[in-house]
Design a protein around this nucleic acid. Structure first.
Length: 867
RNA sequence: GCGAGCUUGGCGGAAUGGUAGACGCACGAGACUUAAAAUCUCGAGUCCGUAAGGACGUGCGGGUUCGAGUCCCGCAGCUCGCACCA
């Protein structure tokens, strides 16, 4: 190899990368047993599994490269590492493909999986492929059906009516995000609200523990915890019942009052109206014989879906003519309004309006000329002169004009008012949660069948264990609207497991968030006959490091946390929290290019000096800012093309360089080229060392400096990987490479041992990022030695971390005036003397009186002077 | 509206309260080459100065400190999330 000319590429990734991949595979380098071995600590690294959309994109490459760095690093550190991969394989795009192109969702999905698996494997990730799972396979979803039935038996599931977005043209239910301006995204039809009987998981019963244990997730990003906290939405207050003064005829007895949730019971004396949601039972009752009320309600419903954002500021209402009395002040009564800003699905769907203490109530009162009684006095204001203006009172205040609450501060008044309400039997303190139960029924084909049979006499009957899994029928058609499961000729017709009479299967399938709520547990025993195997699941879980996009900060992570608890309750897991550490990585962005004809792909343009031009005709192209890659702007890069042109190691190295992983990173052609260049440079250098420097050379003093750099680099890279900053590790490896290049140029055999040591360290330290190159280099350095994947992480020797001399900055009044070289830990008086002797410092001190001398050993000297 | 995060050279970024700008990109100069590519070396925050050196400098304004990119208070801009949550 020593006579290699500089024109041939040193590292032929086209052949070497597949070679090492095959080598790892044949040695089962990345497989681990279902039960973690007792002789080593376990480490479970997991990246969020992908939806098989068709092609891997560079965002995936970044996600999985990060995870692979962790996995390979931990493996080298002596951990037994579980690092599995699978597919979030159910979902709507497969059905859309079926409708648009006539391809069966299963076929479409499995083909996509094959393509994407191929790309992942070509990237050389250290995955245990024997554990691969696809959620669309009965082996997986059948176990999910068991989990569901156990939760049903355990009282964690409920069937109840719920309203959905119904597209009357496509005859399908739409998710909220599929409803655009009140119309179906595909059909354009006006969406209707339709009430269906649906299955719910009782996540709200877990609101308290889900909230409480957030504080223990100290290796989660603060903002994810905050988002979940707000989503769960605990709020303390009171429920208060307002008796109807003038109930209209025909009112049900349970409608003889209006129940309100409030966090401000202390402001009851400031009440000027009660607001109810458009869908509130009282509102609906009023609308029965009041066309105007009905018209207003219908308008509110429309606004609910379409112009919500535009009209957000506009408070509107309708006076029902009903009045309620104030329980704390029974002599008074206030009107009941239907108000568009009151939500039916929060609290009780009714509020009492205290305009002086709530901006919305104030806006509403001003608009409709309702009174604004002043009951909250801001600290420092005078009761006789204070008036509420355009802003409601918030912040520190005391109550006044409020009977027995007068003079109390907000907190005391809340307490006192609740006590009074409870004494009167008209209210009580409650904790209200924003989190609502999780509706999991979807009227779709491509999902996990809900394992229930509906019998006319027995009702909803669980499918018995010996009839599981309930498998999706293959022979379905998408040539008509609606759910194919529903119009399948035979599938849904079964006999009741209970009584044997003719019954029908549930044709709804699970929300695909269910599939991803427990896959991390299934990975620990992916082929077991039960959902989990306790020794495996409890041995490997929790996931030590979970890595994925911030877009899953709330739903997926919250559902997975809930599911883990539910699986604990039903005996499938022994833990409560699935993910001990969470890392959310940023997006990959790219410049966009366009000319007058439209957007251009990056490969259609090239840089010429300052300009970017079209490759085909040289015309100048307009360059847009770097933003999230999207097909519509054509600012995408294909991982497959990058691998073919530069190799997997280059792609991996590049996505780990420069940008810290939690931030967005910009994909640039020059950055990829630099990564490729670096890999080749390392290969040239290490080849040179391997060819020239004897394996058994002894260390000589000439190599001391290089040794120090080597060990400092080992320490620094280790620290950087521990801190999840591979970009910093990359920088340190550049430095080691430069130092080795300097030593390589010197024709000094005294450097031989130090060069070998540096080359070996460089190889091992690069390995988590560029594993194939590292194997090639190690094979050059030690042809008979072990593979890199079988080697331990290098250890920095403390002796060589010590520096020979330190550069100490010398400041005068905090301004740097010079630097001095000193032996490490030199005595203070020597350092100060040398500092004063530094010519530039001496000049700055001249004629000044020394007030104070600051000395931070090995770092800085600061002279404080006067005069 | 509420909340979180971010703001450092031409660009991406580094920096336990202690020499700001490591490392990389782009750029410039040079070496090698008939030439180019590749490779290698050197340079570079801005301004003043031939230089030595000096002034300024981490979004803006204050503060704490011998010393602030870093800590505290206020403000602005950008990004993201939630959004009439009673």
């Amino acid at each position: 190899m020593s006579d290699t000319t500089s024109t041939t590429p040193a590292f032929d990734f086209h052949t070497r990368e597949p070679f090492w991949q095959a080598e790892w595979k044949s040695r089962n380098s990345f497989s681990v047993p279902d039960v973690p071995p007792a002789d080593r600590p376990k480490y479970y690294v997991l990246e969020m599994f992908p939806y098989p959309s068709g092609q891997l994109h560079v965002g995936h490459v970044r996600n999985y490269a990060l995870g692979d760095v962790v996995a390979r690093y931990k493996r080298a550190q002596g951990f037994s590492v579980l690092h599995p991969m699978g597919w979030d394989a159910f979902g709507l795009p497969a059905e859309n493909a079926a409708r648009e192109r006539g391809v069966h969702p299963g076929k479409w999905t499995m083909e996509n999986i094959a393509t994407m698996r191929g790309t992942l494997q070509r990237l050389g990730f250290s995955l245990d492929w024997d554990r691969e799972i696809a959620t669309c396979q009965p082996e997986y979803y059948g176990q999910q059906q068991k989990l569901f039935l156990d939760m049903l038996a355990g009282g964690l599931v409920e069937r109840r009516d719920s309203s959905v977005n119904w597209d009357p043209v496509d005859e399908t239910v739409l998710a909220n995000e599929q409803v655009v301006d009140g119309r179906g995204w595909r059909s354009g039809a006006l969406i209707e609200k339709k009430t269906l009987s649906q299955w719910f998981l009782k996540i709200s019963e877990f609101a308290e523990p889900l909230l409480a244990s957030l504080k223990d997730l100290d290796r989660w990003p603060e903002r994810v915890r905050t988002m979940q906290e707000r989503w769960i939405g605990r709020s303390e207050g009171a429920r208060v019942r307002f008796p109807l003064h003038n109930p209209p005829e025909g009112f049900d007895t349970d409608l003889d009052g209006i129940e309100v949730f409030t966090t401000r019971p202390d402001t009851l004396f400031g009440m000027s109206f009660v607001g109810i949601a458009a869908d509130h039972p009282v509102a609906l009752h009023v609308a029965k014989n009041n066309p105007e009320a009905l018209a207003f309600i219908e308008e509110c419903r429309r606004l609910g879906t379409s112009e919500e954002v535009i009209e957000a500021a506009e408070k509107r209402g309708f006076d029902t003519g009903l009045r309620v009395s104030n329980p704390l002040d029974p002599e008074t009564s206030v009107p009941v309004w239907i108000a568009n800003f009151v939500l039916m699905d929060y609290g009780t769907g009714a509020v009492f309006g205290c305009p002086c203490g709530d901006q919305r109530d104030l806006d509403f009162a001003r608009k409709y000329g309702l009174p604004v009684p002043s009951v909250i006095l801001p600290v420092g204001e005078d009761a006789d002169s204070f008036e509420v203006g355009a802003k409601a009172v918030t912040g520190d205040a005391t109550l006044y004009n409020s009977g027995f609450l007068d003079g109390l501060d907000t907190a005391s008044a809340k307490k006192a008012s609740i006590e009074r309400l409870e004494g009167l039997g008209v209210g009580h303190s409650v904790v209200n949660w924003r989190l609502r139960d999780w509706g999991i029924s979807r009227q779709r084909y491509w999902g996990c069948p809900i394992p229930v049979v509906h019998c006319p006499s027995c009702g909803a009957v669980p499918v018995p264990d010996d009839q599981l899994p309930v498998v999706l029928p293959e022979d379905v058609t998408f040539d008509r609207t609606g759910n194919p499961l529903d119009h399948h000729p035979t599938w849904k017709h079964v006999s009741c497991p209970n009584c044997g009479t003719a019954a029908t299967r549930e044709t709804d399938t699970f929300d695909t968030f269910v599939d991803s709520s427990w896959y991390f547990a299934r990975f620990t025993s992916p082929h077991a006959a039960n959902p989990t195997v306790p020794a495996a699941a409890d041995g490997w879980l929790p996931v030590d490091q979970y890595i994925g996009g911030i877009e899953h900060a709330i739903l997926h992570l919250l559902y997975a946390r809930f599911f883990t608890r539910a699986m604990h309750e039903t005996g499938h897991l022994g833990i409560d929290e699935p993910f001990a550490g969470l890392f959310t990585q940023g997006m990959v962005t790219h410049e966009s290019y366009r000319d007058e004809k439209g957007w251009l792909y990056p490969e259609e343009v090239e840089r010429r000096g300052e300009d970017v031009v079209r490759r085909d005709n040289g015309a100048t192209v307009k360059v847009g800012r770097s933003e999230k890659m999207s097909k519509s702007k054509r600012n995408t890069v294909s991982p497959v093309a990058i691998i073919e042109k530069f190799g997997a190691d280059t792609a991996r190295w590049f996505v780990l360089s420069d940008s810290p992983p939690e931030r967005d990173m910009e994909w640039t052609a020059s950055g990829v080229a630099a990564a490729a260049r670096f890999g080749q440079r390392v290969h040239r250098l290490v080849s040179s060392v391997a060819a020239r420097d004897a394996v058994d050379a002894g260390h000589e003093a000439a190599g001391d400096d290089l040794r120090r750099v080597t060990h400092r680099t080992i320490a620094a890279v280790t620290e950087a990987l521990e801190a999840f900053t591979p970009n910093v590790a990359v920088a340190r490896l550049h430095e080691l490479t430069s130092a080795l290049a300097d030593a390589d140029r010197k024709n000094d055999t005294g450097l031989a041992a130090a060069r070998r040591e540096a080359a070996t360290a460089l190889t091992l330290l690069c390995a988590p990022m560029m594993p194939h190159l590292a194997e090639d280099l190690m094979a050059l350095l030690e042809p008979e030695g072990a593979l890199v994947v079988e080697r331990a992480w290098p250890q920095a020797i403390p002796e060589w971390l010590a520096v020979q001399s330190v550069t100490i900055g010398v400041q005068v009044l905090g301004k740097l005036r010079g630097t001095i070289q000193m032996a490490p830990d030199a005595p203070k008086d020597e350092v100060l003397a040398a500092a004063k002797a530094e010519p530039n410092v001496a000049r700055a001190l001249e004629g000044k009186r020394l007030v104070k001398e600051i000395h931070v050993p090995n770092r800085i000297v600061n002279f404080v002077v006067a005069g």
